[in-house]
């Protein structure tokens, strides 16, 4: 296997808030290969978005990437780069597509100007060349009549069109990696289908890697080749997409899949994961999912599970990997009420 494009080791991004230290990302490691689409799934509070922002070093105080974290990209450690160097990478070698296309665009410039700006900053292109290239990119993202659309302002475009503009901006410099943070969550389902199609299509054309961050397992299944599941600041499972959906190992992944209603599979009642994600300032010791887990036993409270190897490229942070017989004896989840946890 060739060296990965991006290699993250023991990433810890902590926020020093009044309520205590929020360990939003707490020891995350993974690789992204050249040209691959890696899916990153998790619910709010899992740390998936903070991971994305850390890769571009866009963490604002009181947040901080702790020392000892390594984000190696094209032979450089992003964590220790100078400000000039990191700016040279952002929008150029690594770019980002945000969830809310309206707030990610500047309302007082035309979209063409904003796309062209990327090429002027990073490519040193002349105004004219940059504009021509911007129109070309906008056309490539499927914006009809790109010539005149480029002269419009963000508010004159629909949500789907704005997301296309953001994609054009992100792909302008043919980056090695595009981080897409919930790129279709704010869009309607028919528009989402258009945008996902477009992303997959453009990836084939440009050969960029994509880190697809989402809470939607459906989006993951349709775009990613490999998936990482995050829970409570940690990677809890990682596998090839087919493997993950066929044989989820971590109880959280399993629970997530079972709690989604599926079209065409009618159930009387939905399965639920009881309780909620714990606060990032007080991750429980041992397994962080154990209070909500139907299999947990004493070992889960005393021993923080490592990432056990399940199969080729498949790891799971759950002791079930070494005591699989426990899977046959689920119990009602031990959800403990806040405040009486110790009792």
């Amino acid at each position: 296997m060739t060296a990965p494009l991006l290699s993250i080791r023991n990433l810890r991004t902590w926020f020093y808030t009044e309520a205590g230290v929020a360990r939003a990302v707490d020891g995350v490691s993974f690789d992204i290969g050249a040209g691959e689409t890696l899916g990153l799934v998790g619910e709010s509070g899992s740390g998936k978005s903070v991971t994305a922002l850390s890769i571009l070093r866009l963490i604002q105080p009181p947040g901080r990437i702790e020392s000892g974290s390594v984000i190696e990209f094209e032979g450089k450690d992003i964590v220790t780069l100078g400000d000039d160097e990191i700016r040279d990478i952002r929008g150029n070698r690594i770019s980002m597509i945000f969830q809310e296309p309206m707030s990610a665009l500047n309302p007082v410039f035309t979209v063409g100007d904003q796309v062209a700006e990327v090429a002027r900053v990073h490519g040193g292109m002349s105004r004219r060349d940059a504009w021509d290239r911007a129109v070309e990119m906008l056309a490539l993202t499927g914006i009809p009549d790109a010539d005149s659309r480029a002269k419009q302002y963000p508010h004159q475009l629909s949500g789907g069109m704005r997301q296309r503009v953001l994609i054009a901006m992100a792909l302008m410099m043919k980056p090695a990696l595009v981080i897409a943070d919930e790129p279709t969550t704010a869009l309607d389902v028919t528009i989402q289908a258009q945008i996902l199609d477009l992303l997959v299509d453009l990836q084939k054309k440009i050969g960029t890697s994509i880190l697809m961050i989402t809470h939607d397992l459906g989006v993951i299944a349709e775009t990613a080749s490999r998936v990482i599941v995050m829970y409570a600041g940690e990677v809890v499972e990682q596998a090839e997409v087919d493997e993950l959906f066929a044989k989820p190992q971590h109880p959280y992944t399993e629970g997530l899949m079972h709690s989604m209603p599926h079209i065409g599979h009618d159930q009387e009642r939905l399965n639920v994961i009881p309780g909620t994600v714990p606060a990032p300032t007080e991750w429980p010791a041992g397994c962080r999912f154990r209070d909500r887990c139907p299999y947990s036993w004493d070992r889960c409270a005393s021993e923080h599970p490592p990432l056990y190897q399940i199969g080729t490229g498949h790891v799971s942070r759950c002791h079930l990997a070494v005591e699989p017989e426990r899977r046959n004896h689920p119990h009602p989840p031990v959800v403990v009420e806040a405040g009486v946890a110790a009792a």
């Binding site: 389902v189 989402q192 459906g218 993951i220 299944a221 087919d242 599926h262």
Partner: peptide, 8 residues
């Protein structure tokens, strides 16, 4: 258009 959570 609804994404299906099943890669197959």
């Amino acid at each position: 258009a609804v994404p299906v959570a099943d890669p197959h």
